[in-house]
């Protein structure tokens, strides 16, 4: 299993008056190459679960093993290291830096790895062409449309060639046709052997034929796990 969560709890602001329990006793395993959709209303804990799977922070209690690395009690430095080795992120709000070009945005994860400019551009060119956005690589990100931004964001998520891609509401700001294209693109990554974890309440995502499993979250608990597609 590439992702193993066992009795995972997450409590924000632990011990403080504004303490919030976001996840309760989550048990979840995901096999390599699987495509899993987390479904649930706002506040159900989808983003928190994605953040733990994405090595952004560890659980408050329980055991979390991602890509064979046990991340439950790791300091930030190691979480960051595993995140850049294992995870590619696609965000709901794209999170592109508007003043940078598409090329610069896509290659951002490679800078602290010491990858040379030539190698960075070579890798980015390959991905941008594959995602049909190569012609926009020198444009500032702020000049791109929503669909183009999300394609660029997928390219950025893949630039490190991560085995796991985590996408948080990837179609939330896209209209029907564009949303379908983006889900198709993401689903296509499954064919490359990558594991995909998507959160969405968009039926288009949950109903995509390549989704292997749908995990329903309510109030921080897994209510139901279904076979997808």
């Amino acid at each position: 299993m590439i992702i193993e969560l066992e009795s995972v709890n997450k409590i924000y602001n632990l011990g403080e008056p504004n303490e919030v329990a976001a996840l309760h006793d989550i048990d979840l395993t995901v096999a390599e190459g699987e495509m899993v959709c987390l479904r649930g209303p706002s506040g159900s804990g989808k983003t928190t679960l994605l953040s733990i799977i994405g090595c952004i922070f560890g659980p408050t209690s329980g055991r979390a093993t991602i890509g064979g690395k046990r991340i439950s009690r790791l300091p930030d430095h190691f979480l960051t290291r595993y995140r850049r080795e294992l995870i590619g992120f696609v965000f709901q709000h794209f999170n592109m830096l508007g003043h940078l070009t598409v090329l610069d945005n896509v290659t951002l994860p490679l800078l602290p790895l010491g990858v040379s400019p030539r190698e960075r551009e070579k890798r980015a060119d390959a991905l941008l062409s594959k995602l049909a956005i190569g012609h926009r690589k020198h444009f500032p990100a702020r000049q791109l449309s929503g669909g183009e931004l999300q394609r660029a964001a997928i390219a950025r998520a893949l630039i490190n060639n991560p085995p796991i891609v985590v996408a948080d509401e990837p179609t939330a700001h896209l209209d029907g046709q564009l949303a379908r294209e983006i889900v198709d693109l993401l689903a296509g990554l499954k064919g490359e052997g990558r594991t995909l974890i998507l959160s969405s309440h968009d039926p288009l995502v949950a109903g995509h034929p390549r989704v292997d499993r749908i995990v329903d979250l309510r109030d921080g608990r897994i209510r139901h796990a279904d076979a997808g597609g």
């Binding site: 930030d76 960051t80 992120f89 830096l97």
Partner: peptide, 16 residues
């Protein structure tokens, strides 16, 4: 703050 947050989520360490 947003820029630093994005860089960190993309794998930049605090020391970077």
């Amino acid at each position: 703050v947003r820029e630093v947050g994005i860089l960190k989520v993309l794998g930049w360490q605090t020391e970077d």
